[in-house]
């Protein structure tokens, strides 16, 4: 492996004319983006700050989904296309559970608070269970199959979950009760509400908890070990199947929370939402350096901000081009993502 790494490095530096050139290009790209944004910030500060708020909330949600992608990819190298649909399904389950409460929309009551406190753990646990079941049914039997076979079952599971949601609530958009406090304020012309603060803070707490879990607990260590070298981890006595199932479980916890947060914030979901959102979140995971937890969080934020600024300044029809253009640009200069480690593939 070591000799392979050095061969690759040598090969890459020949193809590119030295590693520093790539970094040089990357920094120029970043600097240009920052300068352009700063110019806009000076020209119309209010508009800039307002867009920043939207971008942060959007990015926080992408980050939560991206974490699930990056964890699963890190451990079994699977692009789990069904993850975005797990995210949507959690919003569907969330709205159904909220239907059991007589919550008041548009204002904040004590019952709303109770519902809010209950819904997060319940939905997260349900989704965790579902995702573990998906892993057991669709991915575990294919662990020694050709690499693309689980990718196809992931796509199949994605359609299946979309089908479940379609059958359950039909093709139309589904309303998610608006039960957060409606308090809003304007600071220096920037309009924001408790909702925005809620999304950003909840997401930040979840990411911090995840980081703690991965770095400090035994199971977290087992995950990192399995991601690095499955065989060696097995030899060290780690139960691989259990560790992988735990990864799926935790990924789904985050997606579940993401789905509920999305529902609480936007109040509308539909059955196809997850496919695309998942795709963008996966892009964010790659952007940050796939398999890298802080990378995924930062990638999610950057993609969310990019989408918001592009929507607002360039125009909605260019947003896709901008996001993926930046992605390709970054990967050309930094082939393993923003924070990706420079290690060769196994």
């Amino acid at each position: 492996m070591r000799s392979g790494a050095s061969a690759l490095t040598r090969f890459r530096s020949i193809a590119l004319g030295g590693m520093s050139l790539a970094d040089y290009g990357f920094y120029i790209l970043c600097a240009t983006a920052v300068v352009l944004l700063l110019a806009e910030a000076v020209r119309d500060t209010t508009n800039f700050a307002q867009t920043l708020v939207f971008g942060l909330t959007q990015g926080a949600i992408f980050a939560l989904i991206a974490l699930g992608y990056t964890m699963v990819y890190g451990i079994i190298e699977l692009i789990n296309f069904a993850h975005g649909d797990v995210f949507t399904l959690s919003a569907y389950i969330g709205t159904t559970i909220l239907g059991l409460f007589t919550v008041t929309e548009g204002s904040f009551t004590a019952l709303n608070l109770v519902a809010l406190v209950i819904i997060f753990p319940v939905v997260m646990l349900i989704m965790g269970g579902i995702n573990v079941a998906i892993e057991r049914i669709a991915y575990r039997p294919l662990r020694s199959a050709p690499r693309l076979a689980p990718l196809i079952t992931a796509i199949g599971m994605s359609f299946f979950l979309e089908g479940v949601m379609f059958l359950w609530k039909g093709p139309a958009t589904v309303h998610f009760p608006n039960i957060l406090p409606q308090w809003t304020t304007t600071v220096g012309g920037v309009f924001f509400g408790l909702k925005d603060i809620f999304v950003i803070i909840t997401a930040a707490i979840l990411v911090a908890l995840l980081a703690f879990f991965i770095n400090r607990t035994r199971l977290g260590k087992a995950m990192r070990a399995t991601a690095q070298d499955r065989d060696a981890a097995q030899l060290m006595g780690i139960d691989i199947n259990r560790t992988i199932a735990a990864t799926f479980f935790i990924g789904a916890l985050l997606a579940g929370a993401g789905g509920v947060i999305y529902g609480l914030y936007y109040n509308t979901v539909y059955y196809q939402l997850g496919f695309r959102t998942g795709l963008i979140a996966f892009t964010a995971a790659v952007f940050g350096g796939i398999g890298n937890i802080p990378g995924a969080a930062i990638g999610g934020l950057i993609i969310g901000l990019t989408a918001a600024f592009s929507d607002s300044y360039i125009g909605g029809k260019w947003t896709t081009v901008v996001i993926f253009g930046i992605l390709i640009g970054v990967l050309v200069f930094r082939p393993t993502g923003l924070l990706g480690m420079r290690v060769p593939e196994k």
């Binding site: 508009n47 971008g55 959007q58 958009t173 539909y270 029809k317 947003t319």
Partner: peptide, 19 residues
């Protein structure tokens, strides 16, 4: 005059509306 596509936009319209 802004344009969006459903599958790209999700339900996230604030930045478009902001402009």
């Amino acid at each position: 005059h802004q344009e969006y596509k459903k599958d790209q936009q999700g339900t996230q319209f604030q930045s478009l509306l902001q402009s």
